[in-house]
Design a protein around this nucleic acid. Structure first.
Lengths: 334, 334
DNA sequence: TTGAAAGCGCTAACAT
DNA sequence: ATGTTAGCGCTTTCAA
């Protein structure tokens, strides 16, 4: 592996000055067309590739966008990232990805790496760090957070309205005639605001329909399967189930199927997140979808504003929408 | 947002020279302990953070490792990446991730970005690019590929023995007494070497057991569900099903369950990949596992060798192992 | 143990 | 339209 060629090598080969090479390569209009072709050819001949660190140092910016995902394995996060990347590319920014691996410390580390690289902007998807940490980050670089807003004015937020999601899922079931609607919650003690809001939406819709909370079940035990079993043992079995997420819903479907209960014949089931699982034909699960594309695009739009110098923090809330599939049906008249 | 502090600011505040700050911060031993503490404190006071581009330019290396995944959403890939990252961190390298998004052009772009950043090493997980492209990349930077080896001597390969996987899954079923074992293949025309090898392993095991291929079914149609339905309609229904991956296996399980066929009572099912799905209690799918940790660690070990100057290409093949769960059972004696 | 000085490869302002 | 030049912020000899 011989020495990596530099602009000087290109200049020598093309018989021009180094500066001209720089200008030609960055597509500045004041370079003569013939010269540019010459330079481009020379650069290709010797396999020149711009030295990022050098260019970034000289330009005092990197055209780099750092995206940190709480968990790369979460398809919602990675799809949002893909849309951010598309938007960034259109704006001439190069996207770098990093995985927080569901760990606050690792996430902070990933952010730190980007900050050191002097990325021009930062998007953190569903951060595990607290408001103070986010505020500090926002002071270092233009930053947008995708996820629950916290009091941190130096960063912008895009989030999906979890309460609205819980509400519209519930209303869907109500409109199908269901009155006994159980909510499959997470384990007690898990206090993710997001999940609290989903439940709150459910409760609000029930209340609005004049149904007391007593007619519904909010399970609060650990395993999803156990929660579903609990529902089975109720004196008055609900006709519909709203789960806090798809995995939980699918676990419940498994338990119900084993118990010989038909879906949606005997009981309707709704999930949340509209994951790939929900769309699988064997599950065909009605589920609340969060608009991934709009989330990503909005995040990038906010980032551009920030990079443009906007100071006051902005928060954008996006509405989820229900994807109706085969796991829900009108209440049976038996 | 005021000016970003530089080493000069730290030096001024600590009352020392810039060079000393650099040495102290990079932990060089020849700096007096008291001076170092002083400098560290000053650096913290003014919120100094090394300028990556500048440092990388001056050092002529970056201590950066670029990892490009074919598809970040594939949990096998992202878990391998996590293990690579752990190994790299232990070796003092910082890992940067990027997503090829299942597109050869985008993947090439991601590699290009890393090359420009002058990463010290590159790992590409399951690349979509051809041998020529990989060879070219390997010439630019020490590179290890996780996935099917191709003739590209400038890069190293780590891959999992797909044939062995197909074989051991089949042998498991054979040892349970199954003789009629159907293989659920991908759609005809998909010629991924990996999948061909999985099937080849199955065929080899069947042949070794003295079972002609005629006793088995290799479906070659598009949708997994359809393939399973095909199996149902066979004159002589197999007692076991080996699928080319977990998703396919689970789709088949859905079809079978709907048809009232018990698993594993009437038919045993084996998947491939040991995804999260396979472990879910409602599926409890026996599946072939590829050792994610060892794959990642091996990839990084090879990379270190390359970075250390080794020239000839190396290929390491890892053995998969079967995770036996509840979807397989001895053939029923009915 | 500390400081001075010379680049690293590039960009951009200025000069021609 | 092209060339000259002065840094960007840092690391790293080499001297003191």
């Amino acid at each position: 592996m011989r020495r990596i060629p530099t602009q000087a090598d290109v200049a020598a080969r093309a018989g021009v000055s180094r500066a001209l090479v720089s200008m030609a390569l960055s597509g500045r209009p004041e370079v003569a067309e013939t010269t540019r072709t010459l330079i481009l050819q020379a650069s290709r001949d010797i396999g020149y590739r711009v030295n990022g660190p050098a260019a970034n140092l000289a330009r005092r910016r990197t055209s780099l966008l750092g995206v940190v995902l709480q968990d790369v394995a979460n398809p919602f996060f990675s799809e949002v990232a893909a849309h951010i990347q598309d938007a960034a590319e259109a704006a001439g920014l190069t996207t770098l990805l990093n995985d927080g691996r569901r760990d606050a410390a690792r996430e902070a580390q990933a952010v730190e790496v980007f900050l050191r690289l002097r990325v021009d902007g930062l998007v953190i998807v569903s951060p595990l760090q607290d408001a103070a940490a986010l505020t500090a980050i926002g002071r270092q670089a233009p930053t947008v957070v995708v996820g629950q807003p916290v009091p941190a004015a130096t960063v912008d937020f895009v989030h999906n309205d979890a309460a609205a999601g819980g509400r519209c899922a519930t209303e869907h079931l109500l409109s199908l005639g269901h009155r006994d609607i159980a909510y499959l919650d997470v384990a007690a003690g898990v206090e993710e605001p997001l999940l609290l809001d989903r439940r709150a939406g459910y409760l609000a819709a029930m209340a609005a329909a004049g149904l007391s909370e007593r007619t519904s079940v909010v399970s609060d035990i650990a395993a999803d399967g156990d929660a579903a079993r609990l529902v089975l043992n109720l004196a008055r079995r609900p006709t519909a189930l709203l789960a806090h997420n798809d995995v939980s819903a699918i676990a419940a479907m498994g338990v119900l199927a084993q118990a010989g209960i038909a879906i949606p014949g005997d009981i309707s089931v709704v999930g949340y997140d509209n994951t790939r699982l929900a769309a699988m034909p064997q599950f065909d699960l009605t589920s609340v979808d969060q608009p991934r594309a709009r989330t990503g695009e909005t995040a990038f739009a906010l980032l551009l504003e920030r990079m443009g110098g906007r100071e006051p923090g902005r928060t954008v809330r996006l509405e989820p929408n229900l994807i109706v599939r085969g796991s829900t049906a009108p209440i049976s008249s038996t």
